[in-house]
């Protein structure tokens, strides 16, 4: 699922590793989500949104889901 995690993360000057620590996942998972290779669970999506100061709806674009 396409998302704006990388953009918002950079706006907040956070690294993938820092976001990973804040959301209790590995850096590889954050990287996979940013590159549209893994769709996070609902819980993780909410945690990411909270961590980046936004909402799930704004962070993820369901219409941009890769086939």
């Amino acid at each position: 699922m396409r998302n704006s995690i990388a953009v918002r993360r950079k706006q907040r000057q956070l690294s993938q590793a820092e976001v990973a620590v804040l959301t209790n996942v590995t850096r590889q998972t954050i990287n996979a989500i940013e590159n549209d290779k893994y769709d996070p669970s609902l819980t993780l999506a909410f945690e990411l949104a909270a961590c980046l100061g936004t909402t799930v709806d704004e962070l993820f674009d369901f219409r941009g889901k890769r086939e």
């Binding site: 209790n24 996942v25 590995t26 590889q28 998972t29 996979a32 893994y38 996070p40 669970s41 993780l44």
Partner: peptide
């Protein structure tokens, strides 16, 4: 498994 992606 370190997190949900690893579990997946």
């Amino acid at each position: 498994a370190g997190d949900e992606r690893d579990r997946n």
